[in-house]
Structure formats: C-alpha cells, structure tokens
Simulated assay, not measured.
Amino acid sequence: MMRTRSLLSAVVVSLLASFAAAQDFPSKPIRLLVGFPPGGSTDVLARVLAQEGRKPLGQEIVVVNRPGASGVIAINEVAAASPDGYTISVSPSSAFTLAHHFMAIRPDLLEATTALMLIGRQRIGIVTHSGSPQRTLKEFVENARKNPGKVSVGIPGLGTKVEVITRAIAMHEKIDLNVVAFQGDAGVITNVLGAHVAAGSFSVGGWATHVRSGAMRLLASFEDDRFDVAPGVPTLVELGYPLTGATIQHLYGPKGLPPAIVRRLVAAFTEASRSQAFIDIATQNGLYDKNPLVGEALDTFLLKDRAANTELVAKLGLGLKKKP
C-alpha cells in the first residue's frame, strides 16, 4: 500500500513539474535545427521562421545547421533531445517518409518525433544552365539517350522525392542518367551554374531567381501545375509522365512533447507564418502555403505520404537493393 502511494506521489510530482515547465515555456533560447547547409530552401524558410517567431515566444531562436544524410542527421538529433521544446527542427517530409528506402536509417522517424505544423510546400522542377543546347526536356532526354551514363543531373540529397522522380523519368525513358547528390540546393545551384552537371532537379526557391535572370532554363515542372516564373514550360504530366513530386516542409520536435508546449509552439509559429516577412520570403522561394496543416491532419498527411512513397518505390523497383 505504501509503495503504491509512493508511486502515485511520484507520478503527481512529475506531472506537476511538467505542467510548471510548460507554463514557464520558453524560459531560454530555442534551437532550430536545419539538416542542410545555409542558403538552401529549408535553411531560408527556417531563418525567417526563427526571426518572426521570436516576438510571440519572447525568446531568441537560434538556427543551427546540421547538414548530412538528406536531413536525417538533424532529425536524429531532435529525436534524441529532451522533450522540453528547446530543440526543434524544420525538414522536408521526404526525410521522414522516403529516405529510409535509399539509406540505411530507421524507418520510423515519424514515430520518433512530434510533428507540429506544415510551414511550406516544396515545389520542384528540372533546370539546365542557360548555355545548354537542350531547351526542352525532350531534347535533354534525347541527349542522354545518345550519351548513356555521361549526362549528369544534380539533386539536393539521396532519398528525396526529387531523386525518385528524376530516376523515374530515366526508367520511363529507358536512359542511363548519372544522378549526383549534393548536400542541399546550394550545391546543385553552384554546379548547374558552373555547368559541372548537365541539369539539376531541385526546389523552385533555389532556381527561380536564376530562371528570371536568364542564367538557368526550366525544362519541366514536377508539380500538378506550371510555375508562374515560366508559365510556358509544361508539367511532367502534360509531357506524358505519370509523375508528380510535391513534398512539404514541416516543423517538428522530439517525441513526448507536453501538449501545453506543443500548443505554445504551434500558436507562436502560426503567428510567425502569418507575418508579411514570412509570406514574402516563402512566396519568393515558392514555398508559401496559406493553409498549414497541424495536429491530426498533419499526422494523417505524413502517414499517407509514407505509404504512397513505399508503393511508388516498389513499383519503380528503386531502393537500396534495386537502384538502377
């Protein structure tokens, strides 16, 4: 009986301590991890989110870059962190729902973390440098057909939706593309501009400015619709490919975050995402979504995305054991 009372007392004390901590949250700066180098779309979105989130939270938000493994290094650090709300991160959903098919990592990253809210949609296209003689995706494919294994396409990381769609195009056309993975959009941008790769598949935030300036040329949209920056360029579906590559960017923390801290973070970052500064940066980078998902709706989206990606990878014969 005494032991039962002691256990109950310990539980009550623990709950009260957690409640008190949640009430005082945040009482110190928050770390916002980014699993990619500075300059890419995830980093840009995280930095404006941190900037605009400081006021509603009343604390500094320090952006810390932890590049590597297509964002998984940062995810693992968050998953191992104390569930107190002081270590959170922004990541593309593909790191949770797709990367495990291409890298020897745990497949349950969704279950190891707490999804907080969608903060952007990552829209993707394939581009070449302006000096390329290939002006359309059809011309690019024909060049690759004539030069098997010699035509390279840069992507922002392995295990991404970008990689799957790029390889799916190659399989659909029965061509041998040399897919080169970099750490984030920044590496792809540098190599496309320098003509070190023949093309790059990555998010609109990385290439929109260069397409507008004429330094890059868009060959196709991986989305359901065309891009405003190049309305004359068709989508993959319009070109006859049964493929789309939409993914999201979402904010997450460790598993077991107290509900009060979850509510505090979601409320603060929802306010931040409605600021004009955030809207402007997210729009400029092709990431803005005015209807962010939260809570159960976000969890459902991510679980469905993981199931759909598993089906797509199997259908295409991709993954660790069957890469083309």
Rank of each mutant, 00 (worst) to 15 (best):
G154L: 02
A208F: 09
S213A: 13
G58I: 06
G253Q: 05
E52Y: 00
Q276I: 08
S9D: 15
R217M: 09
V64P: 03
L177Y: 07
K55N: 06
T87S: 13
V313N: 02
L193W: 06
K174C: 00
M103I: 13
S94Q: 07
L298D: 10
D228K: 09
M1L: 13
V141K: 00
E163R: 03
G319A: 00
A307R: 08
K28Q: 12
A267P: 00
T270D: 13
G35P: 06
S221K: 06
S94H: 15
K304Y: 04
L16Q: 08
P56C: 01
L177I: 09
S93V: 08
E139G: 11
E223R: 05
R54S: 12
Y86K: 00
K323G: 15
R145G: 10
L49E: 08
K255P: 04
L118I: 00
I124H: 14
P38G: 05
A195F: 08
L303K: 15
P156Y: 01
T113G: 07
S203R: 06
V141I: 15
G232L: 04
A268G: 03
A208H: 10
D108S: 12
E163L: 09
F102M: 09
R135F: 09
K28T: 08
V151F: 08
A307Q: 08
V34T: 01
S82R: 14
A115W: 03
I88S: 02
V179M: 10
P38I: 02
G245I: 02
A22M: 08
V262I: 14
N178S: 13
H210D: 11
D24Q: 15
A17S: 14
S27G: 11
A10L: 14
L236S: 07
L98T: 06
S152V: 01
Q23V: 14
P56D: 00
A69R: 15
A10R: 14
V233P: 07
L298G: 05
G214S: 04
S14L: 14
A268N: 06
L218Y: 08
F96K: 12
T42M: 05
